[in-house]
Computed example of a mutant assay.
Amino acid sequence: MKSLKNILIYILSMIFLLSLTASFEGEKIIDHNLMGLDLSSDQMKLAFYDKYSLMDQMDTEGPDREGEQYVMGNSGDVIFYYQRVLRMLGHMDKEPDGNFDQTTKDAVVAYQREKGLESNGTLDYATLEQLDLEEPGYTTGQQGEEILQYQEILYYLDYLEEKPQGTYDVATTTAVRSYQQDKGLAETGILDMETMDALYREPITYGPEKEGEPIQLLQEKLIYLEYLFGTADGKFGSMTTDAVTRFQQDQGLEQTGLLDPDTVEALNRLVEVTP
């Protein structure tokens, strides 16, 4: 299938991400990639499939594949995946949850009508095959938790100036296009799977004038280690810079005052559980 390679690449990156984010809810341990981004919501948990079972399901030829279909009442990882595709294509407003409900059926019907398929509201063989040919992505006007997660990466990489809110606006389009240009990707301004995969691989460095939950969690660790005093507010100010610099000095790290991957790794090693 045309987009199978992109799909599998994305799946592998999501599986890798699961290993990084599994401890966010209980321990709030922050890794040097995607540190602290909230990917542990109920909607996102189903994003992480078993890669072998999904590969088998999506790369099957012959009668078994032709007989594959999903209807209202079904649930699972494959449905979650196609909900995401339908959402990216603008046919579904709700966040994917892996449950084939009425909203999902309506989205399937809308897609089938657009493509001239039988409008039966079922993810049947013909509909699955057509969806597999798509190269979906988020674009201007869409909003949601997944968009916010990628916006936050762009924000911490300095492609977005303002802390994002989850709406794919003109600033996000411009940021995505600039990122794509820097990475040698097709400059579409669309947050497609190739761009998402590249963003997930980015190491993040937190510095002055940034804010957010990842910084708050790291401040909590600095407070626990008595390098920072007061309340962790998630804003990277001068006191945080001073605390990070002193921590780096004690750990034999380059004294940049920035929460770079090496510094975060050292913090995680010393404080496995955020108080």
Rank of each mutant, 00 (worst) to 15 (best):
L154R: 07
Q149H: 04
G144R: 08
R177T: 01
Y150W: 03
Y150I: 02
R113G: 11
K94E: 15
T127F: 07
E146H: 01
E161D: 15
A110D: 15
G141V: 02
L128V: 07
D158F: 04
E135P: 02
K94V: 08
T127M: 09
N120V: 04
G90S: 12
R177K: 14
F100R: 13
T140M: 12
Y138A: 01
F100Q: 15
D124W: 03
K105Q: 14
E145S: 11
Y111T: 08
E162N: 13
Q142T: 04
T104S: 13
P136L: 04
T139D: 04
D169T: 02
V176A: 02
L128C: 07
V176S: 01
Q165H: 00
E129S: 09
I147G: 05
V170G: 07
L131T: 02
E95P: 07
Y156I: 08
L117P: 01
P96S: 12
E162D: 13
D97N: 15
Y156S: 10
T103D: 15
L157D: 03
K105S: 11
L89P: 15
Q112M: 08
V170R: 15
Q130N: 04
A110M: 09
A171T: 05
G116N: 13
Y138P: 02
V170N: 09
M88Q: 15
P164L: 14
Q112I: 08
L133I: 09
P164Y: 05
I153A: 02
P136T: 05
D132E: 11
Q142N: 04
L154C: 03
N120I: 06
L154T: 02
G98P: 02
E135V: 08
Y159H: 05
T174A: 10
Y155C: 05
P96Q: 13
L123F: 07
E134L: 04
D101F: 08
Y125Q: 06
V109K: 12
D132L: 11
Q151A: 02
N99A: 09
V109D: 12
Q130L: 01
L133H: 09
R113L: 14
A107G: 08
V170A: 11
L133K: 13
E146Q: 06
Y138N: 01
N120Y: 02
P164Q: 12
D158Y: 08
A110Q: 12
L131Q: 04
V170Q: 12
R87K: 15
A175P: 05
Y125A: 05
G137V: 03
Q130R: 07
Q151C: 06
A175I: 03
